[in-house]
Design a protein around this nucleic acid. Structure first.
Length: 832
RNA sequence: GCUCUAGUGGCGGAAUCGGUAGACGCGUUGGACUUAAAAUCCAAUCGGGGUUCACCCUCGGUGCCAGUUCAAGUCUGGCCUGGAGCACCA
């Protein structure tokens, strides 16, 4: 028996306990059913859930439950991305142990996730900061190292002096440290990298395979990879002609403009810049370079587009023309991209044009629009055109000339075709404590030596002092630093850097397939069975970082022979943000809503229902208190409907022949089929939960109307009502999880509604037997008539022409054409 | 600047194929119930105009301007505005 009144907290607590004890959500590897892997991006255990989490996990949970009811063996796991800066910051600030701080947060958030009624298989929980996980993160590092995909080099990093540590690019906001607001500096340090650039082409090309990803994410990744096709030209330096020779290579996407070069620019950090500077220019160049070094990101941004530079005093020779042109240094040339040097053609490049104007450098037009030739005195001409002043290439279309001119350079031995990417290798070193130690030692004799696999995990030391300033706390450990070399057994020093947390999160979705394996990172058969993830759900903020790194990892691990697929996430849903009063919920704005309060005041079912109800998942969602009330009211209305009718519901109802039911009953049965169809399609098509919920409401309203119309219920009525209500309970089960279970149980069913079969619709019954025919004259609606839905075109036309309205309006006019759309409308086109 | 994305009532948003624009809800207004309130239930709710004041008629309306079509929120071309990402990438 249902209670008279809806007490969400009571119902929810009861079922959560029953589900947990009965391990209702456990996933077994062995099953006859097809697999389905539904995954949310795992959380950082920051302390408490926020509404973004609630939205993310509810969406994925509904998908998982829906697929389970449809007969899939569903994997729906959860874990913790638990290494990272906040834990360490808490340690530095309050003297707390990062491990303890993290554990406490995980415990609290676990409780919240359970309160939300999420159907996770908790036996597969992974926690990246635990040795049983980071052992395998380290092991995977070693596999990449063996493959030559992990290497160490000197690199410029973002350094925050007041925190005494490097920061990841993503932790630098507008050139400042995200934590202390200190201006970030560049510093040269020896760092570990993953060679993601080896996969640039594959990462770009395979985006095409990802049909289940949004174009926004795919284009963001494509832009980030930044492929461009062009040429390398090598220019001889005139001043070195008699001194053994020297060349400056440039990368260009405009080889067609090579005859128009009037100067050349190298970056201030260019490696050979000192050799290219004459003694007379040395002081000016040194001053310019020193200034460039000193400039922060902020200053580089603030003086945007006002280009500066100084001449080096040397010259290059253009092999195509024999002309000489001067070398300059300017900070609009980037050391990290291409060769660090650019050929400047001010007539056909806007940046070069600005620079040439400022320093009075010569212009030479080599491309023209034959219809409307420009002298390029006022602006660069960057449109397609035909070559001029270019010797044998004159008259050639510039697109064709790109290839021909590069070919000439190849033949002449001073150039080649070149494909260039903007993607850089992934810097994974962090001078931080709370991360997975990089499993490498430095031996006095053997140099860089990877730790032996049987010695993993390299445990994070616990004897550290978090109060140190200017260095990683890990360096204060007395037990960590000194070790023995795995090769020679002599003295060695451990790598003190830890890995970027994005390394940990680049493979966690693989670990879920075999989460408790202590012998391997995962069993190959299991990982191939469960992966790829069928539906991945998470925030757009990971469009590049996490999603690109994970794709790289999957491809690299495939090449290591650890798995057999090359893309990890088949379908990706990037959910919108949760807003309040039109702006993003944030602590600093004070517009956050605490999920705990919503659970306490309305229950989890209301929270779940509301967060799905007002916007499609991909769009931003505006949280409103009135909206929560509205969802809560609906749940009460739904509860009352079932509670009032409970005594009339026959568990094993029998509808008999639907066509023999009375009119109201026949209509109700048909409408229920229409709603099954609509709701099923709304979920399958882009997970439109907002319209799913509006259909719940419509069906509920319909049932209230039906009950109002029927005073006394006969046996037929009871069977029809039972069908409708039991179907409704199943339809709401994926979203309104606790109430559906409570009702299902109260009606006498055994087992969980979440293991029940998803209702099926009958295609014939899901069509209404009658419809409203719309009659238009010249496209404007003039009449509406209720007709049998199955009427033929001819019959519909006849009905339309017989309408009083039509007769009146077409009297004396010539009917030009009649368009009949079955099940929809008739449009009569009249002349005049 | 480049790329992506969106633009529909007071608000969130509906509208497979081009075929009744505004589903469903929030809000608002009116009413029922009640001593009263809450809760609940019922009704109205795009705008202008007309009228025999009704279950009526008519015109306009999906960011703007054109076009295709019997028919356009939906398709095509051009533009405007908001959001996001990248940004001196040669």
């Amino acid at each position: 028996m249902l209670e008279q009144q809806y007490f969400p907290q009571k119902i929810e607590k009861k079922w959560q306990e029953i589900w947990e004890q009965g391990k209702v959500n456990k996933t077994y590897d062995e099953s006859d059913k097809p697999k389905y892997y539904a995954l949310s991006m795992f959380p950082y255990p920051s302390g408490k859930l926020h509404m973004g989490h609630v939205r993310n996990y509810t969406i994925t949970d509904v998908i998982a439950r829906f697929k389970r009811m449809q007969g899939y063996n569903v994997l729906h796991p959860i874990g913790w991305d638990s290494f990272g800066l906040p834990a360490e910051n808490a340690a530095m600030k309050h003297g707390a142990d990062p491990a303890k701080w993290t554990d406490e947060n995980i415990a609290y958030m676990t409780k919240q996730l359970k309160m939300l009624g999420l159907s996770y298989d908790w036996d597969r929980e992974v926690t990246t900061c635990k040795p049983d996980y980071y052992k395998w993160t380290q092991w995977l590092f070693l596999q990449l190292y063996k493959k030559g995909l992990a290497y160490k080099k000197e690199a410029a990093v973002n350094w925050c002096e007041s925190c005494g540590t490097v920061l990841a690019n993503e932790q630098v906001i507008d050139g400042k440290c995200w934590r202390c607001d200190e201006v970030v500096e560049k510093k040269y340090l020896s760092q570990w990298f993953f060679k993601i650039t080896d996969y640039a082409e594959e990462l770009l090309k395979d985006l095409e395979k990802l049909e289940g990803w949004g174009d926004n994410v795919k284009t963001m990744q494509a832009n980030w990879i930044g492929k461009s096709e062009g040429a390398i030209f090598r220019f001889k330096v005139k001043e070195y002609e008699d001194k053994g020779g020297m060349e400056v290579p440039v990368y260009t996407t405009r080889p067609d403009t090579v005859h128009g070069i009037t100067y050349l620019v190298v970056a201030p950090e260019y490696k050979d810049i000192e050799k290219l500077t004459t003694p007379e220019n040395k002081d000016a160049v040194e001053a310019y370079r020193a200034n460039a070094r000193k400039m922060t990101e902020i200053e580089r941004l603030s003086n945007d587009r006002i280009k500066t530079g100084v001449p080096l005093g040397t010259h290059c020779i253009n092999p195509f023309t024999g002309e000489e042109f001067p070398l300059w240094t300017a900070d609009y040339a980037l050391a990290e991209y291409g060769t660090g040097a650019v050929m400047a053609v001010p007539t056909h490049d806007e940046r070069d044009f600005d620079f040439a104007k400022k320093y009075n450098l010569p212009l030479k037009v080599v491309i023209q629009d034959p219809e409307n030739p420009s002298d390029c005195k006022d602006a660069a001409y960057v449109e397609p055109g035909v070559l001029v002043n270019s010797n044998e290439f004159n008259g050639m279309k510039n697109e064709d000339a790109k290839k021909a001119i590069t070919q000439k350079a190849v033949d002449g031995g001073f150039g080649e075709f070149k494909t260039q990417y903007r993607l850089r290798d992934w810097l994974i070193s962090r001078q931080r404590y709370w991360g997975a130690p990089i499993p490498v030692v430095y031996c006095d004799k053997c140099g860089i030596v990877p730790e032996k696999e049987e010695n993993l995990p390299v445990m994070l030391p616990t004897d550290v002092d978090f109060s140190v300033v200017g260095k990683s706390p890990i360096t204060t450990s007395k037990t960590f630093k000194d070790t023995t070399c795995p090769i020679c057994g002599g003295h060695a020093i451990r790598e003190m850097d830890t890995m970027d947390t994005f390394v940990c999160s680049s493979w966690y979705y693989l670990r879920y397939s075999d989460a408790k394996n202590s012998e391997k990172c995962f069993d190959k058969e299991l990982v191939n069975k469960w992966l790829p993830v069928d539906q991945y759900v998470g925030g757009i903020e990971h469009a590049i970082l996490h999603l690109l790194y994970s794709r790289f990892f999957t491809k690299a691990l495939k090449d290591c022979g650890l798995l057999d697929f090359d893309e990890p996430f088949k379908n990706l849903l990037t959910q919108g943000m949760v807003l309040k009063d039109g702006s993003k919920m944030s602590k600093s704005k004070g517009n956050t809503v605490d999920p705990d309060e919503i659970f306490a005041n309305y229950g989890a079912d209301t929270a779940r229902l509301f967060i799905l109800s007002d916007s499609p998942p991909a769009r931003d969602f505006d949280w409103s208190d009135a909206g929560v009330e509205g969802s809560y009211k609906f749940l009460n209305r739904l509860y009352r409907l079932i509670a009032i009718n409970e005594k009339n519901i026959i568990k094993d109802y029998n509808l008999g022949d639907v066509s023999k039911l009375d009119k109201e009953n026949n209509t109700l049965v048909r409408k229920v089929h229409i709603y099954i169809k609509g709701i099923t399609q709304d979920i399958e098509n882009e997970f439109q939960f907002n319209t799913v919920i509006s259909k719940y409401r419509e069906l509920t309203n319909l049932l209230y109307d039906w009950c109002g119309a029927k005073k006394e219920l006969n046996d037929e009525d009871k069977n029809v009502l039972s069908f409708a209500i039991i179907t409704l309970i199943k339809l709401i089960a994926p979203t309104i999880v606790h109430m559906a279970e409570e009702m299902y149980n109260a009606l006498g069913f055994e087992g969980s509604v979440h293991n029940a079969q998803w209702p099926k619709y009958d295609e014939d019954l899901a069509k209404m037997s009658n419809m409203t025919l719309v009659i238009q004259i010249n496209g404007k609606i003039k009449d509406k008539i209720d007709v049998d839905a199955e009427l033929s075109k001819e019959e519909l036309e006849k009905i339309a022409l017989n309408s009083e309205k039509v007769k009146e309006l077409t009297a004396g006019k010539k009917i030009v054409k009649i368009i009949v759309v079955p099940r929809k409308l008739v449009n009569i086109v009249v002349a005049g």
